[in-house]
Design a protein around this nucleic acid. Structure first.
Length: 434
RNA sequence: GUGGGUGUAGCCAAGUGGUUAAGGCGCUGGAUUGUGAUUCCGGUAUUCGUGGGUUCGAUUCCCAUCAUCCACCCCA
């Protein structure tokens, strides 16, 4: 905060991506795109600013009141920087609802903003892969979406036992809260919050939260019994519940497909967003050093209809870049970055500048990515610079080569080099880099 | 929003109420006008995050502020 100069730091909770980091980001995003596109999902994007009301209507309370970046524009419109992508998606789908072929399979990697205090895995700006499938009301949609989520991680090389998909259903939980426990509408969010924390705290602390929420001993006992019950044992109490039926069908499919071992029913999974209406799920890292939720999603059947047109059911998930990178790092499967420049054309002295540039142009026309030295410097320095940028090949041409119509190609990794005719340079390099 | 830790160069860091603020890595120039290493020589902080206070004197002590990290809150 010097008074003379501006700070070079990025805004709190945001990151600069220098070329080195941008390469990693690009490599991760490319892998994500390849995975979701293999399922036939198409890319879309929307504006970073949306009307404030878009979020005021459907996201959780705290998200809007505490963590939304919002302001008034010059035309007195209240706008917000998008804190999540799903409302934008719903708006876009609603605006073309009668033109889009169903089911709609869309994905995006938007940057999202939330005003909060940065900490591990949580920043103010982050990128989030969003994958959504709209137009299907039945659990076949969830079966696909969960497969996409699983194959995303597998696409990076994650093992089948490195993570786990934990699944629950909002309608099942509604039945528990309203019918089985007969909670008041004020108690439900408090109990839900306690359940959300259950895995992280002691049983006694969990009970304390329930007592604070106004639960009686019998209710606590019933809830605890429910939370530890496997899905099969819930049939007696919830056999007619649509959520229970969905879950059964979902697990039947998943088991038949062979993904049973990766998926588990967990009635503690709730997720905070108000708009989920059906199955909700979270993907958990099973590595002991990183045991936490990586990402999650669920079904939102009422969101698109908010815009007044046709009600279109949807299911999807969002995966943040920070937690994903932590996962990949923890498991040692960060993608390898490949060099973004194929060849550096060196410069021996100023008199050979034009010839060097001609060679470089020739190589670019042949489809190679070519950087060049513009001002002469010591040869050793040129090699060093090129190597530092990860460029594998250096093309050199001094007075000797120039006179004989030759060039020298040096492989920076091995240090080996050979001299060949300028006319055979392009095929030589193309063959090498193929 | 709450509580706590930490701020000395691009990075890692030593240091002290008293003239010029160690060292290492990195970067950079040279020794070396046809080859990346090693070695050697030089340059890399007019000042210790910023502002104020105490003091004859502050990088050091005090306050504030900013940044950052950790936990909480909440989670898209």
């Amino acid at each position: 905060m010097s008074k003379q100069s501006l700070s070079t730091q990025p805004y709190k909770g945001t990151r600069d991506f220098f070329p080195e980091q941008m390469q990693v980001r690009d490599a991760i995003f490319s892998q994500l795109r390849a995975s979701v596109e293999s399922y036939g999902y198409q890319a879309y994007d929307g504006p970073m600013l949306e009307p404030f009301e878009l979020y005021a209507a459907k996201s959780g309370d705290e998200i809007v009141s505490e963590q939304l970046y919002s302001f008034e524009d010059r035309g007195k419109r209240k706008v917000a920087m998008r804190p999540e992508m799903t409302p934008t998606l719903a708006r876009m789908v609603a605006s073309r609802s009668n033109q889009l072929a169903r089911p709609i399979r869309w994905y995006s990697i938007p940057n999202l903003w939330r005003y909060e205090r940065p900490q591990r895995g949580r920043l103010r700006e982050h990128w989030q892969l969003n994958v959504d499938l709209l137009g299907l009301a039945s659990v076949e949609a969830e079966v696909e979406i969960v497969q996409v989520a699983i194959d995303l991680l597998r696409g990076f090389g994650a093992g089948i036992s490195d993570f786990e998909v934990q699944i629950n259903h909002r309608q099942l939980m509604d039945a528990v809260f309203e019918q089985k426990l007969a909670l008041s509408s004020e108690q439900v969010p408090l109990v839900a919050r306690a359940i959300d924390k259950r895995a992280k705290i002691e049983p006694a602390a969990f009970e304390k939260l329930l007592v604070e929420a106004g639960c009686k001993a019998q209710q606590i006992e019933d809830l605890n019994a429910f939370l530890v019950s496997p899905l099969m044992e819930l049939e007696a109490d919830f056999g007619d519940n649509p959520g229970f039926k969905d879950l059964c069908r979902f697990f039947d499919h998943v088991n038949a497909i062979g993904l049973g071992p990766v998926c588990r029913f967990n009635s503690s999974i709730l997720r905070g967003l108000d708009y989920y209406t059906g199955i909700v799920f979270e993907i958990y890292d099973k590595h002991p050093d990183n045991r936490r939720a990586l990402f999650g999603g669920g079904r939102y059947d009422n969101l698109v209809g908010m815009f007044g047109g046709e009600q279109i059911p949807g299911v999807g998930f969002g995966m943040g870049d920070v937690t994903l990178a932590d996962f990949l790092d923890t498991h040692g499967i960060l993608p390898q970055v490949s060099p973004s420049i194929d060849v550096m054309v060196g410069l021996f002295d100023a008199s050979l500048f034009d010839l060097s540039q001609q060679i470089a142009r020739q190589l670019r026309q042949a489809g190679l990515r070519v950087s060049s030295v513009l001002v002469p410097m010591k040869l050793g320095k040129q090699f060093q610079n090129a190597d530092k940028q990860g460029i594998p090949i250096m093309v050199m041409l001094g007075p000797d080569e120039a006179q004989q119509g030759q060039v020298t190609v040096k492989h920076l990794k091995s240090g080996e080099q050979e001299t060949l005719a300028q006319t055979s340079l392009v095929p030589y390099l193309q063959n090498l880099l193929a």
